[in-house]
Amino acid sequence: MLEELRAIQRALQVDKLKKFKRRVSFGDLMTDRWENARQYGFGEGSSCYDNVLILGDVTVGKHTWIGPNVILDGLGGLTIGDHCSISAGVHIYSHDTVRRSVTLGQEPIEYSSTAIGDGVYIGPNTVIKRGVRIGDRAVIGAMSYVASDIPAGVKAWGCPARVMGDVEL
């Protein structure tokens, strides 16, 4: 049976390479990104790779792309708008255990809702801290750490992310 499964995987990989010039995990070969998003209750036309970790209450709008290896932590509530691109490896948090850890368990886990507006692009391997709000049509550069709110219509990047100018449409 294992050999049959491997043969199916090889055939699916060859097909994926021919059609899309990409190689994906076994889970993504066996599932449909748009069906994954529908099963999570995400908006019409949104897609979500099979290897995305989704925790808690996550709401995603229409036509939003969630890339591979993303973490969407909705334990404190997470909302992502319409027409967003959440690039590969992005982590978006709505809780942390910092105070609980450094107080040896005396303080509780902290939760704060996090919100991403409509038309937001978040570059690869970016981390967004709990409680952050990112305004509509903002662009966050790759490998940024977003520790505070980002207004609408700006581009920001860095560690910590800072506003670097306006998005040019």
Rank of each mutant, 00 (worst) to 15 (best):
26 F>T: 06
27 G>Q: 03
27 G>N: 01
27 G>V: 00
28 D>E: 09
28 D>F: 00
29 L>E: 03
31 T>D: 00
32 D>G: 05
33 R>G: 10
34 W>R: 12
37 A>Y: 02
37 A>Q: 01
38 R>K: 14
38 R>P: 10
39 Q>V: 08
39 Q>I: 05
39 Q>Y: 07
40 Y>L: 14
40 Y>N: 04
40 Y>S: 08
40 Y>C: 08
41 G>P: 04
41 G>V: 01
42 F>Y: 09
42 F>K: 01
42 F>T: 04
43 G>H: 03
43 G>W: 04
43 G>D: 09
43 G>T: 12
45 G>P: 02
45 G>H: 01
45 G>T: 02
46 S>V: 13
46 S>M: 05
47 S>P: 08
47 S>L: 06
48 C>W: 06
48 C>Y: 05
49 Y>I: 07
49 Y>E: 14
50 D>K: 14
50 D>Q: 14
50 D>S: 15
51 N>E: 13
52 V>P: 06
52 V>R: 05
53 L>S: 11
54 I>P: 01
55 L>H: 11
56 G>H: 14
56 G>S: 12
56 G>P: 12
57 D>S: 13
58 V>S: 15
58 V>P: 10
58 V>A: 10
59 T>V: 11
59 T>R: 15
59 T>M: 10
59 T>D: 13
60 V>I: 14
60 V>F: 09
61 G>S: 01
61 G>K: 07
61 G>T: 09
61 G>H: 11
62 K>M: 11
63 H>I: 07
64 T>I: 06
64 T>Q: 04
64 T>R: 02
64 T>G: 06
65 W>V: 13
